[in-house]
């Protein structure tokens, strides 16, 4: 692929996106990519988020990285911010868990309780953020 082909692909995707009703409130996913995260497989986590978001036809989620979040013992970690839901840091985010997060949290508004390691308060976790 050349840079010109990349530009053309982007224009094509923009046209497809403009035809869909897209909310202006963005989802955000922040992946921990410190030394601990890298060693635990955070790159695979990032790649799986991109693949699964593509399959779910979510193209406007902001996906960024940060350094160590202090949860080295449960890397890879990912903070998920979805409008209308509490911000959540998930731990042990393997590629399989990524699929659960997208299906449950992003698409169905339910937290993946067994992987929540920080935020929110316990009572919100118990009722799944609903």
């Amino acid at each position: 692929m050349t840079l010109e082909e990349l530009r053309a692909l982007r224009e094509q995707k923009k046209k497809e996106l403009s035809k869909r009703d897209v909310s202006d409130k963005q989802m955000q996913i922040v992946i921990g990519m410190g030394t601990c995260g890298i060693a635990a497989g955070a790159k695979d986590t990032l790649n799986t988020f991109l693949s699964e978001l593509d399959k779910a036809e979510i193209s406007d989620a902001v996906v960024t990285q940060t350094g160590c979040m202090g949860l080295c013992y449960v890397e890879p970690t990912a903070e998920v911010r979805v409008p209308g839901m509490p911000n959540v840091i998930y731990g042990n985010v393997t590629p399989e868990v990524v699929k659960n997060i997208i299906n449950e949290h992003l698409l169905n508004g339910k937290m993946v309780n067994e992987h929540v390691y920080d935020r929110p308060a316990a009572d919100i976790i118990d009722n799944g953020g609903e």
Partner: peptide, 16 residues
Amino acid sequence: ALGEIETSGALAMLRD
């Protein structure tokens, strides 16, 4: 070429 490199759509194209 991509406009930005922070959304999942742009990153997927960049990866390819």
